[in-house]
Amino acid sequence: MNRANLAAGLLLLAGTVLSGCGAAKETAGRMDSGGGAVNVSLINAKGEPIGKALITEKTDGVHIVIEASKLSPGKHGFHIHENGKCDPAEFTTAGAHLNPEGKKHGFENPKGPHAGDMLNLEAGPDGIAKGEFVDKHVTLAKGKPNSLLKDGGTSLVIHQDPDDYKTDPAGNSGARIACGVIQ
C-alpha cells in the first residue's frame, strides 16, 4: 500500500471512530431520558415483515423513525395504539389509540389530540414510506400513564387512508394495514 492510500485509510478510520463517539454520546443521553432506544418490527395483514421503526426519547419528545414498504402510494394514518398486540389480519388486538387523558381524536379537534395521534405517513410511488415523527404527549419512562412501555406494551399502526386530523375516534383513516409491537 502506498503512503497516500495509507494516509487516506487512516483519515477514514479516524472519522469513523470520531463519528462513533458522537453516536455513543447521543445514545447515552437517550438512556438518561428514561428509556433508551426501542426497535419495532412492522408486519402487514398477512403477517409478513414490511418495515421497522426506531423509537427514542429526547428532550423535545419521543422520536419515531419509521421505514415501511409494500404500502399503496399516498398518505396513511399513523398512530400509537394502546395495546402491545398485533394479531393479523385486522390488528384489532392493538386496541384504540393511546389516550390516557380521555381526549378526542385529532390535532384540529379542540378537545384533542389523543396522546397516540401522529401526522400522516406518506408512501412514494414505489410503496416505500420513510419518516421521522416527534410525539410530545408520550414517554418511554416506565410507570407513567402515557408510557409506550406500559405493562403489555403499546403498538404502532399504519392505516389504509389518510387521517383527517379531526374526526373521532380515528380520523377516518380506514382499515389497519400494518402493525408493530412496542415493548
Rank of each mutant, 00 (worst) to 15 (best):
M1F: 14
N2H: 04
R3G: 06
N5S: 14
A7R: 03
G9D: 14
L10V: 07
L10W: 08
L10M: 12
L11E: 12
L11M: 11
L11C: 06
L13Y: 08
T16I: 04
C21P: 00
A23G: 13
A23N: 11
A24T: 12
T27M: 14
A28R: 14
G29W: 03
M31V: 11
M31C: 08
S33N: 13
G34K: 04
G36K: 12
G36A: 07
G36H: 12
A37H: 04
V40P: 01
V40T: 00
I43Q: 13
K46A: 13
K46Q: 14
G47Q: 12
E48C: 00
E48L: 01
P49W: 11
I50A: 07
I50M: 08
K52H: 09
A53W: 00
E57N: 08
K58I: 01
V62I: 02
V62E: 03
K70F: 08
L71C: 03
L71S: 04
S72A: 15
K75M: 09
H76R: 03
H76E: 01
G77C: 07
G77E: 01
H79N: 12
I80L: 14
I80H: 05
H81W: 02
E82Q: 14
N83G: 10
N83P: 08
G84W: 01
K85Y: 03
K85W: 00
C86F: 04
C86V: 13
P88S: 14
E90R: 05
T92R: 14
A94C: 04
G95S: 08
G95L: 03
G95E: 08
G95H: 07
A96S: 15
H97P: 11
H97K: 11
H97I: 06
H97V: 05
H97E: 13
L98A: 01
L98K: 11
P100V: 09
G102I: 02
K104M: 14
H105G: 09
E108N: 15
N109F: 13
G112Y: 04
G112A: 05
G112T: 03
H114D: 14
M118Q: 12
M118C: 09
N120H: 02
N120Y: 03
G124Q: 11
A129W: 04
F133M: 14
V134R: 05
D135R: 10
T139M: 06
G143M: 06
G143H: 05
S147H: 02
S147C: 03
S147A: 05
L148I: 01
G152A: 06
T154G: 05
L156K: 05
I158S: 00
Q160F: 01
Q160Y: 01
Q160R: 06
P162Y: 05
K166W: 11
T167D: 08
P169G: 10
P169M: 12
G171P: 08
N172T: 00
N172D: 11
S173E: 04
S173Y: 10
A175D: 08
I177H: 03
I177A: 01
A178P: 02
G180P: 01
